[in-house]
Each structure stands twice: as structure tokens, then as C-alpha cells.
Design a binder for these strands. Structure first.
Lengths: 278, 278
DNA sequence: GATTTTTTTGGACGACCGGTATAATATAAA
DNA sequence: TTTATATTATACCGGTCGTCCAAAAAAATC
């Protein structure tokens, strides 16, 4: 990625963490990063898309750190699990993600909301999988309940501590939650107490589908944007693309061929390529 | 309260629940409630203060309903406790409070943020107290941990269900959390495992102080607003009131006497009265 | 019923916001 | 050197919340 663009993201990120998403205006970002408005909207289609980019970068880095933690260690090691959870929670804290998520929800940006929701579910699935690895497959039928419970305890505790402005080691909170889960798991396995089907998450929306949905959404958004400034001919082609992209099995060749005939199609072709790559 | 004002609150409430706080413009509220902009800002100092009023009304009603539930029943009855928790959760759901809280957080309105935070802590204290009543005083040293944990499990479960758009009985979620707490409490009492001092909340900020703070804040806000349109003489008096109100022990008679000499002092006197009433 | 006081009206206005458009300029590639 | 691309600065659009104010309506007082 462009070095300059990276710089804008960095400046924006700092501002978002410092003042929050809504309180940071595009103007603020322009001043801090020393670019013009034109360039900004050349880099990012909107303020919220910039936020998404930042999210994606943060999550990518967090996932990498989490993978490093477990490298070469057994999957059932509780300490490793705790350290992995810690990584994510620390990243959340450092980047003020909690507050940023709030900002997102209010933003009335459907795409952004979906993104955050998806992230939450993904995180839940990760924990569900890891809990089965840590506690053994006997907890599998209860793994979703357990993941949600553990997540809830940790989040709510950290939230509480933030509210009363008390500083407690994230480790100790996670370790505490883990000890509680030890007892809960024993009890749950014994009483066979299930609230939610453990396969709910997989059935709900498999990961690939989620990504696909996002790509489609982006593509349709681009098409919509292009329609604004399209002549009659281009508009008809764009409407065709819209319909075809919404089909059960869109025909790649057809879409690409048509897209190539629409003026100003660089981004469009990239998005189409991305859409079919998955 | 003025019938008309009530009506405005009702209309705004409906709009907030329907479209969310940010997406509802003051103009929308004016049209729905059929008042003019002037009247609106005569009733409420700002859009966010209107939201606070609505919150207060909702919480008041929820508290009443919760008191009704326990009327004449033993405090240790688990079923009663579950029904009480249910009341609050249902109110949250009905009024889209979760989404509204998000809206608040973004608003960059410190007063509003404090209000929400305070509400959360108050709710936590309620649950802490009730858990001691339900499980007996042996859980007292662990009551804060337990309250936070239970709250976290319930909230996160409901949040998850909302995210995947699944509808599950709130009862069953709360009852599930309760069953988990049964095991957790046994384990916690046996192992004497404490994370947070159970008196943390009381020590942090006693309820009365919180209310007092809020009243003071409102009073100072009003004074600040009046300064905008005050002549030289009134301004000096207002500045005196400001200083006196910020004193450790403000002198009531002095404040009232001075306030009575300031033109347009109706609201001011009410706020002062309220300030000292506590 | 007449007069005074209070409330309500409705729109102009200011200062912002996110986002678009564009013509001039700077930079890089050919 | 010419051509193509990237960047700039700014005007502009429609929207936000909130202020202000003269005029009208309603309520309270005489």
C-alpha cells in the first residue's frame, strides 16, 4: 500500500483513539496528515470505509500476534489460551476498540454495522473452537454456551473496571474467568445443561459466506456509486451488472466483459476480480 | 409535568426506538409531535437532555415494575429474582436501550456518558445486593464478582442472540445463567477465590454523592447558560453563584437570596431547591 | 371585557458536518 | 518534452444541532 495512504490511516487511527470516531472530523484528519480533501476521498470512499480499513489492519496484526503465541505449543495448554485471549483484549484496550465500536453502531452505516457484528461472531467462534481444544471434546455440545459465558464475564469485568477507572491486570481477569469456567464446565458436562446448539454459529453463516457477502456488498455499492454519474448507456449496463451480481451464480465472464465496456472501470474491475477470487 | 411536554417525549421515544438516536433529527421530532422548534428548545436544553429525560422515565418505570414483582415475596426466592432481572432485560429490549446507549456514547456529551455509566453501576449494585439475599451472606465477599459475571453472561448471550437474529425466551437465558451461578457460587465459596473487593462499588461512589454531583452539574450548567444572555450586573451575581455552588459546603440562604435578585430565575430557583433538597 | 404576562410559533441564521466537483498545479512516466 | 496521473485548494450541496427574535396566540390577572 501507498506509504502516504498508510500515513493517513495512522493519523486517523491516532485521532480516533484519542477523540473517538464521531468527534474526529475529516477535516481533523486532513490537517493531521497534511493532505487535501481531494486526496482523502481518492484514498478512501468514505470516513467509515477508512475506519473499516483500520479495523482490518488492527485485527490482522492481533491475529498474527495470537498465532505467534501458540507457535509450537500444545493446543490444550491453558496458559497459552489465556495469553491468546490477553492479546486480543490488550489490542482492544490499546486501540480503544470498545469506544470505536460504539461509534460504529451509531453511524447508521449498515455496512459498518455488519462488519462489526461479523467480527464479534468470528471472535466467538475462535473461542468456541479453542475451548474444545483446551477442555477436550466432551465440552463440544456446550462449547457455544461456554464461549459466550466466558466472553461475557471477561468483557463485563473489563468494562466495569474501565468505568470505575480502576487498573487491574488483564491477565488476572482472564485467569479468574478461566477458573470459573473450570467449575462451570464440570457442572455443565454433569448436568448436560445446554442453552444454545453448539453448531448454531456454523449453520448461521459460514465464514466464507460472510466474506463473500461483504465482497458482493462492496461491489454493489461501487455500482451504485457509478450510477450516479453515468450516462444512459452506462447506466443500463450498470443495472445489468447489478442484477447479475445478485444472481445465485453470477457469470464471471459475462460480468467482466460488460464491466470492461464501462468508462472509469478500474476500481470496478478490481472489485469484480476480488468478488470471484474467493 | 406538562401534558404537551410528555407528548413530545413520547413521540421522540418512539422515533428513537424506531430509527435510533442519531438518525432521528430534531426536525423529525418536531413534525411527529407537532410543536415548533422554539417550544422544543424551551422544553429541553438539547437533544441529548431529552434522551436523558426519556432514560430516567424508562428506568423509573422499570424500577417500579421490579418492586411490584417482589412485593410480599421472600427475598431469597430465586424465581422472584429471575423475574426481576427479566423485567429489566425486557425493558431494555422493548426500548432498544442497548442501541440507544450506543448513541449516547458517541455523542461526546460528558454529562450523558456519566449518566449511562452511573446507571450501569447502579444496576450492578442492585444485582450484587440481590445475589447476597438469594444465596445468603456467605457469598458476600464474592458478591461483586458474581454480579459482574452473571450480568456478563446474560448480556453477552442476549447480544449474541440479537446479532444472529434468533429469538429465545429471555427467561430461559436468565435461568441458564442462574444455574451456572449455582455452580460458580459453590466453587467460589469453597476455593475462596476473589477478584474484586465486594465493597469496591460502595467505596467508589456512594449513590447519594452521585445524585448530588448530577444536581450540581445541572445547576452549574444552568448558570452557564444564563451567563450567555446576562447583563453586567447579573453576570457578576451569576459568577458568584458559580463559585459558591462549587464550595465544599455551599450556603443555601446566600445562594437563594442572590438567585432571587437575578432576572429570569424561575428554573434557577427550582434547580437550587433541588440541589439542597437531597 | 380589557390588560398584562406567558407560551408558542416559525423561520432566519451560524457554525459545523460528510461528501462532490472542478480547475489549476505538481509529479512521474513515456 | 510531452503525456498521464496524482494532488491541491476551494466552492458547493444538503444536512445536522442549536440560537435568536418578532409576531401571534393563549392564559392569567385585573
Amino acid at each position: 500500500m501507498n506509504e502516504r495512504k498508510k500515513n493517513v490511516m495512522k493519523a486517523a487511527h491516532a485521532l480516533f483513539v484519542e477523540k473517538g470516531y464521531t468527534a474526529t472530523s475529516v477535516q481533523d484528519i486532513l490537517e493531521k496528515s497534511g493532505i487535501s480533501k481531494g486526496t482523502f476521498y481518492n484514498y478512501f470512499p468514505s470516513k467509515s470505509e477508512l475506519l473499516i480499513s483500520i479495523f482490518e489492519k488492527i485485527n490482522l496484526e492481533a491475529d498474527e500476534r495470537r498465532t505467534e503465541v501458540i507457535a509450537g505449543r500444545p493446543v490444550h495448554d491453558k496458559e497459552v489460551f489465556i495469553r491468546q485471549v490477553k492479546v486480543k483484549m490488550e489490542v482492544n484496550k490499546e486501540n480503544n476498540l470498545f469506544a470505536l465500536f460504539q461509534g460504529v453502531f451509531i453511524s447508521e452505516d449498515e455496512e459498518l454495522k455488519k462488519f462489526v457484528k461479523r467480527h464479534h461472531l468470528k471472535e466467538l467462534r475462535w473461542m468456541q473452537r479453542r475451548l474444545v481444544e483446551v477442555y477436550g471434546s466432551r465440552v463440544r455440545p456446550y462449547s457455544l454456551d461456554t464461549a459466550i459465558s466466558m466472553f461475557g464475564i471477561i468483557q463485563n469485568t473489563l468494562h466495569f473496571l474501565a468505568a470505575i477507572e480502576e487498573d487491574v491486570e488483564v491477565d488476572s481477569v482472564i485467569a479468574y474467568a478461566m477458573r470459573r469456567m473450570d467449575a462451570v464446565v464440570e457442572d455443565i458436562v454433569k448436568t448436560k445443561d445446554v442453552l444454545l446448539d453448539s453448531r448454531l454459529l456454523e449453520r448461521w453463516q459460514p465464514e466464507e459466506l460472510l466474506i463473500k457477502e461483504r465482497k458482493k456488498s462492496r461491489l454493489l455499492q461501487k455500482i451504485g456509486a457509478m450510477q450516479q454519474s453515468a450516462d444512459e448507456q452506462a447506466d443500463e449496463l450498470l443495472r445489468f451488472l447489478q442484477d447479475e451480481a445478485r444472481e445465485e451464480t453470477p457469470r464471471r465472464l459475462v460480468i467482466e466483459t460488460v464491466a470492461k465496456c464501462i468508462p472509469g472501470n478500474e476500481d470496478l474491475l478490481t472489485l469484480i476480480d476480488d468478488f470471484f477470487k474467493g
